[in-house]
Design a protein around this nucleic acid. Sequence first.
DNA 1: GCCAACGTTGGC
DNA 2: GCCAACGTTGGC
Length: 158
Amino acid sequence: MRYWLMKSEPTVFSWDDLKQAPNQTTCWEGVRNYQARNFMRDQMALGDRVLFYHSNAKPPAIMGVAEVVKTAYPDSFAWEPHSKYFDPKSSPEHPIWVMVDIRYCHDIDPPITLPQLRQIAGLENMILLRKGSRLSVQPVTPEEWAVIMEVTHSQGSC
DNA sequence: GCCAACGTTGGC
DNA sequence: GCCAACGTTGGC
């Protein structure tokens, strides 16, 4: 099992939105970066754990844990002309972008804010914390995951 | 609102 | 293939 971090702007899709979604599950459409896509397409497996991160939030924070319940499949939003994720280069015959489905697992309560993350020993090399890092889907090492789970005392089964 | 960092586009 | 211009991300 691998570990990931996925960013979402809460004004677009929030942690609460996930909790209130049918089956507490959502498709993760709209990834339009090749590196992020390749992680989803090539490496994400059923049961992988995901840190759900609020970007462009006050404060930015890790809100909870989700799990991958469906592996990569074509992102059909890319060929919806009225979607903000429309990409004319993609088509049903030749999809470019993929999405996965994730399901709510448990809260991280309280959320771990970005300033707090920067102070936690063992997370110095987290991709999220690197200067200029913008990857919206990124791997988290088992060691980083363990540190974060240690810091939050929230637990829950998926 | 600002702006640094990054990714993409397109002319050459 | 180079690289300048541009658009986006996302913290502050």
